[in-house]
Write a protein that binds this DNA or RNA. Structure first.
Length: 216
DNA sequence: CACCAGGCAAGTA
DNA sequence: TACTTGCATGGT
């Protein structure tokens, strides 16, 4: 085991001791995970929750209902989370893909290999690496590590990666450090997001209250 | 007022 | 390959 691997595993251990299990991803269904993953693109989660509530109130948080809903009504419902014109189109495209390619059957998704499904998701306009991996991990149950802005911030501050390293470089580096288990990567990503939200803010690089900066 | 929020795609050099 | 910009709303 090299130095960085030890460091990253120590980070995971500290966060696990601090947070326990955060019960991620917060959603009532696999499809809700996918919708949330798109709506949260460059958007704060509190505003995503407003959009999800709008959809739930109208009983629209359903693959087929969104698929046949008019673009205008979809845009109106997801307005609070911003970029509504582009995100409405993205949601439509994903529904189209799930129905046409997998007959809207999530058990069929789970049977597909991780790398093959990832390739297919990345073909869809509006799904980049982070959205694809969030779907793979939290909706389909594949053991992948999700890299987001928070991951870059925290790991670069702790000298584990370079802030400008590519998505794939960071992902494969972290993947090497753990055995591929869904539970591990589920928890790790949730810890990183919560840590960044609560302690390691963008304008506050010191993070004095952060559990990662306390001696163990 | 400026800056930030769980990105992505398209355009440019 | 490595930048830059548009997309849009709501909180601090």
């Amino acid at each position: 085991m090299n130095k960085k691997q030890l460091k990253v595993r120590r980070i995971y251990k500290k966060l696990h001791a601090y947070f326990g299990d955060l019960g991620w991803w917060p959603a009532d269904s696999d499809f809700e995970v996918i919708v949330g993953a798109v709506l949260t693109q460059n958007t704060s989660w509190v505003n995503v929750e407003r959009s999800l509530q709008n959809l739930k109130k109208k009983n629209l948080l359903d693959l087929y209902r969104i698929h046949k809903l008019s673009i205008k009504k979809l845009e109106t419902a997801i307005r609070p989370s911003g970029f509504q014109t582009i995100k409405a189109r993205r949601l439509k495209e994903i529904c189209e893909f799930l129905i046409k390619r997998y007959n809207a059957d999530f058990s069929a998704l789970r049977k597909q290999t991780c790398w093959k499904l990832r390739e297919e998701l990345l073909q869809i306009n509006g799904i980049g690496p982070e959205t694809a991996d969030s779907i793979l991990l939290y909706a389909v149950g594949k053991p992948v590590f999700v890299v987001d802005a928070y991951t870059r911030r925290i790991f670069s501050r702790h000298k584990v990666v370079d802030f400008n390293d590519s998505y794939d470089k960071i992902q494969t580096q972290i993947l090497r450090y753990f055995s591929p288990r869904v539970k591990t990567f589920n928890r790790f990503h949730s810890y990183i997001v919560e840590t960044a939200k609560q302690f390691c803010k963008k304008n506050n690089p010191l993070c004095e209250e952060c559990p990662l900066n306390s001696s163990m």
